[in-house]
């Protein structure tokens, strides 16, 4: 079962298209996905996943279990950056501000990794709950606060945000494109329910897999280019952090899933969220709040190392882990 799961994930069209893009970029191919088109694909995917989650949520009543999962999700997002920061300071030569900015990425989430995990679970016939999309949205932001707290400790000046710039940072953190589209689509899906979804299903449900393949081709190109251009900025400690940190995140989350009695599918998604690293919302917030942190370090790690690892080997491992702890 385990080897079958790993093989079926690795040989799924979405992963193969990602590998195609990654390989093309590493071999310096000139292939590229037009910028506006790629951004349109990202908005489409977030709308589709938000709508689907909202519709599923409309079918179930809010229960204490959901609040327990939300509590765990918040604790993970707030807490993981502190662990990541300590690891980075011990294992790599990163400066305090670079380590704080990088740590923030590892407390937040990657929505594309989440989507890929839902597809892998669907392929394995494992059911997931719609409200897990809300957990993904919930985990985007708290890690940014933790990164700012970490950067402020001991080096006040670099962690400070000027009063006039706080509003700008607030907008970037809470109203960035991914949060607005994801939460907005989730609310619309929740309000309109199955009847509303039926009307837009030909656009948001049927072509979803194909669009995801296109998007992952672009993600592969971006990850490959980022890795090619930025790997020299990372020492061995930082590079290994990009793979070890997701595994630690997964290992910490699994017992919590067992503790609150999550289903296999939902546990696999929460583990995946905890193991993923942001490359959209957090980099933008870090450029505003911690401009001295080097984007070539945190982006190469989250997009060039952790994302490919999670997409290929991480997701099947997290599903296996969820099968051990899930009810």
């Amino acid at each position: 079962m385990s080897s079958e799961l790993i093989l079926s994930t690795l040989l799924s069209p979405i992963v193969l298209f990602f590998i195609l893009g990654l390989g093309a970029a590493l071999m310096r191919s000139q292939m590229s996905v037009p910028e506006s088109f790629a951004k349109g694909l990202a908005i489409y995917l977030m709308m589709a996943i938000g709508l689907k989650g909202g519709v599923e949520m409309s079918k179930t009543a809010l229960s204490p279990d959901i609040f327990a999962i939300a509590g765990v999700a918040l604790v993970l997002s707030f807490g993981m950056p502190f662990l990541a920061y300590m690891m980075l300071r011990v294992t790599s030569k990163m400066s305090r501000v670079d380590a704080a900015a990088t740590a923030g990425h590892y407390g937040s989430i990657s929505i594309v990794t989440f989507v890929a995990a839902t597809q892998a679970l669907q392929l394995a016939g494992i059911v997931t709950s719609g409200y897990m999309v809300a957990m993904a949205a919930l985990m985007e932001v708290p890690a940014i606060m933790s990164a700012l707290v970490l950067a402020r400790r001991g080096m006040k000046k670099e962690g400070e945000v000027a009063g006039s710039e706080k509003g700008e940072l607030f907008r970037e953190v809470f109203l960035n494109a991914s949060v607005v589209v994801l939460v907005g689509a989730l609310a619309i899906g929740w309000m309109t329910g199955e009847a509303g979804m039926e009307k837009i299903a030909p656009f948001f449900v049927t072509p979803f897999q194909g669009v995801l393949c296109l998007f992952l081709l672009d993600m592969g190109l971006n990850a490959g280019r980022g890795l090619r251009q930025g790997w020299r900025q990372l020492d061995a400690g930082a590079l290994s952090f990009g793979i070890i940190m997701p595994l630690i995140g997964a290992a910490l989350t699994a017992p919590l899933c067992w503790l609150i009695g999550m289903s296999i599918g939902d546990a696999a998604l929460l583990i995946t969220l905890a193991a993923s690293a942001s490359y959209i919302a957090v980099p933008a917030a870090m450029r505003l709040a911690l401009p001295k942190a080097q984007p070539s370090i945190y982006l190469t790690l989250s997009l060039g190392v952790t994302f490919p690892f999670n997409l290929t080997l991480g997701i099947p491992l997290y599903i296996i882990l969820a099968q051990w702890v899930g009810g």
Partner: peptide
């Protein structure tokens, strides 16, 4: 610049 090439990205935040 800064010892590395960069190019316009396709991510939604456009932070790069």
């Amino acid at each position: 610049g800064g010892g590395m090439r960069w190019q316009k990205g396709t991510d939604l935040s456009a932070s790069q």
